[in-house]
Structures are given as structure tokens and as C-alpha cells.
Amino acid sequence: MISLNQGLWVPGTDKYEYGYNSIPNIPVTGAPDDTNFRRWSMLHDGTTYRLYAFKGSSRDTLYQFTWNGSSYAYGHDSIPVLTLTNAPADADPSSISLLHSGEAYHAYLRRLGDPTTLYQFVYVPGTTTYQWSYGDYVPTLQVTGFPADTDWSRWSMLHDGSAYRIYAFHYGSNDQLAQGSWNADASQYQYAHNSIPELKLTGFPADSDVGRAAMLHDGSDYRFYFQKP
């Protein structure tokens, strides 16, 4: 059974600190045997903390977990299995990020071979599907200006009530994140736009799996998670 090592952003600084005003370690329970925790994400929708992971080697099927007061439990108060639909042929399912914007649930995949192009999927209310190119939502988004050493295999996104934000590690670093946010005037995610360009992780235990990270904002705090095997 995996668990999550949790830290929070310390206001007024450039640091996410392990255990700061938070439960340091949180269990994940009830996961199906074929849950692929290498490909996962988290969000908060204004009410509930949610965790998602792909089913096995599937390109389009997600398992959903929610916080039940003591663990992230599979299927608790949620649709247990969700499907990504209408995905472009070159969508890369090797990683995923999800967020809630205050009005909708969003999921993002990178373009294969072009990780600074994002495909946006949106949850279709009343169904079990996230659909690419749904409604009036922009189907394809660009990310610009990030440093050349950005490790796009380790990235995350969130919405903090006012801004859409994107984060990624640097190659060779397990404690520094590059940050950008959505610039509506330019219609793209831009490095350092309306954000602290570089953030540090402090105090996270050595047993953290630095290849498996997620982030969310819950209406009051920015939260960062590493999986603990």
C-alpha cells in the first residue's frame, strides 16, 4: 500500500515544507490490484480532496479515490472509474494532471514528443467521461518560456481560485520546481508569469518517491505530495 508525504507552501517564502500545518503522511486504501500509481494526479474541487491514477497500462481509464477523513479511499463518495474520450492520436498518457477550476473538472495530457503542448479534457457532467475538445474549452494549450533543463516527465497543475498554474522539476534536481501560470492576454502558460519562478521543497523524507509528485490548492493552501512506496 502506498502513502503520501505531504507538505504545504509557507506563505511569504519560496518554500514547500514537509509537514507544515498538515498531516505529514496519508495512506491510500482500497486500490485495485492493477492501479498504476506511476501515472497519477490530485485535485480539490472546493469540497473534496480527490486522487486519480490510471488503470494498468490503459491509455484512457482512471481510478478515482477521495479523502474519507483518514485515507484516500478508492471509490469513496465518487465515481470509481472514469474514461478519457476523443483523445488525439498523439496524446501522451505516460503522465496526467488534473485540476478543478471552480466551474469544471479538467484533465491534461501532453503531446507525444512535444511536452509543452497540452491537450485539455473536461468532465462532462452526469457522465463518467472526460472529453477532449468539450464545449467552449480550448482543446490545445501552449506552455512557453520554461528553462531548457525542465523535466516535463515530472509536472503538475492546479487552480488556486484566481490563476491556473503549472509546475515542473528540473533535470537532476529533486527539490526545485519551476512555476508558470496562464496568461490570458497571450493565451498561453508562461514561465514566471504572475508567480514565483522557482520554488524549493524542504524537509521531505528520504523515502519519498521523487518520480511521483502531485500538487493541489484547496481554497486556502497550496499542497505538495510525494508518494511513499
Rank of each mutant, 00 (worst) to 15 (best):
S78R: 01
I2S: 10
L8F: 03
F204N: 05
P88F: 04
T140H: 06
Y105P: 07
H76Q: 06
D151E: 14
P11I: 01
N86L: 06
T85H: 02
Y105I: 11
N68L: 13
R212I: 15
H170V: 12
Y191A: 02
D209N: 11
A178Q: 15
D221H: 13
K15T: 14
P93S: 08
S57V: 00
P80D: 07
P24A: 03
Y123T: 00
V122F: 09
D77P: 01
R154F: 14
A206F: 09
V28K: 06
R111P: 03
M215H: 01
A89H: 11
A53H: 03
G113R: 00
G161R: 11
G135H: 02
A31D: 12
T85W: 09
E103N: 13
D160H: 13
L216Q: 11
G219I: 02
H76Y: 15
R50S: 14
Y222R: 12
S95G: 10
T13G: 02
R59K: 13
Y105H: 14
A163M: 14
A214Q: 07
W132C: 01
T48D: 08
G7L: 11
G102Q: 08
L158A: 09
W152K: 10
G69K: 02
H76T: 07
P93W: 09
I166Q: 05
P11M: 01
S41Q: 05
Y74F: 15
L201H: 04
Y20S: 04
E198R: 11
G12R: 11
A89Q: 11
S78D: 10
A91Y: 04
L201I: 13
F65S: 00
P80H: 11
G113Y: 05
T129R: 06
G113M: 02
K15S: 12
I23V: 12
G113L: 01
A192R: 04
D92I: 09
A213H: 12
S3D: 00
S94E: 06
G19N: 05
W132D: 02
A104I: 03
D175H: 10
H170K: 15
V28D: 10
S187Q: 11
Q120H: 13
W40T: 08
Y191T: 02
A107R: 10
L43I: 08
A148C: 06
A73V: 11
G19Y: 04
N194M: 07
Y164M: 11
Q120D: 00
S41F: 07
A89I: 14
D114M: 13
L4P: 05
S78L: 07
D218Q: 09
K15W: 04
A178P: 05
L158W: 12
P32R: 08
A148G: 07
P125R: 09
Y225T: 06
P80C: 05
T116V: 14
N5I: 14
Q190L: 14
Y222F: 15
D149R: 12
S78A: 15
N5V: 14
T116Q: 15
A91M: 12
W9C: 00
H159Y: 15
D175C: 05
T127H: 15
M1L: 05
N21M: 07
Y171E: 12
Y191F: 11
N194R: 14
R212A: 13
G126W: 11
A192K: 05
T47Y: 00
Q179N: 10
